[in-house]
Design a protein around this nucleic acid. Sequence first.
DNA 1: ATAATTTGGTTTATAACGTAAACTTATTTA
DNA 2: TAAATAAGTTTACGTTATAAACCAAATTAT
Lengths: 101, 101
Amino acid sequence: MFEPLDPLLHSELRLAIMSLLVSSDEAEFPYIKEQTGATAGNLSVQVDKLSTAGYISVEKTFKGKRPCTICRITPTGLKAFEDYVVALRSYLEVKSDEKKE
Amino acid sequence: MFEPLDPLLHSELRLAIMSLLVSSDEAEFPYIKEQTGATAGNLSVQVDKLSTAGYISVEKTFKGKRPCTICRITPTGLKAFEDYVVALRSYLEVKSDEKKE
DNA sequence: ATAATTTGGTTTATAACGTAAACTTATTTA
DNA sequence: TAAATAAGTTTACGTTATAAACCAAATTAT
């Protein structure tokens, strides 16, 4: 009836991060911070979790002399996001008293 | 850009409960338990939270000699659910690099 | 009759999670 | 050269979610 929701994606900030990365193939840390309105600390933690799960890749480079963290979604992450969206539908659709399952 | 998600609804089990109640105007505790696959304890806690928030009403009656807990969604709860669905869309839609906001 | 099981839950203890605050390091700017 | 800013990370804490333990009444088995 209700499909389980990937707990890694069922989090406001992590979902927002993934949402951004689905649309733009890469994004820098400060941009994600600005778009999501998250604090740097919270963002850092959640980026790390997504990265550890293999949902995003994180590249640490430099932009001039300043450090620059670039995030990208991975194929695994994209698949997980798509699956999550499908699963969510089972919660959002109105069921007109269907039988079982 | 991303609308905040009502924390009370952004929970797998509570969302499932609300989803059931949106479609069926009332549902008994054991039915919700069966449909969601939740444990009775977890369900009891989450029903209580939704009830405290005024999102559902809980009526305790009897069915024959056995206790029977009936849940119904309230207008407040329905509104909250609808708002949540709208807010969620801001995370699920693919944005083709639109400008700002 | 009474013991065991089932039904229908509630309470509570714990582990996981989200978040902000504090901190670090390097770089500009005053 | 001192202060402020940028770009993060670490850590500490309060909040949540969840299962385990519990309770009471009714039903079924012995």
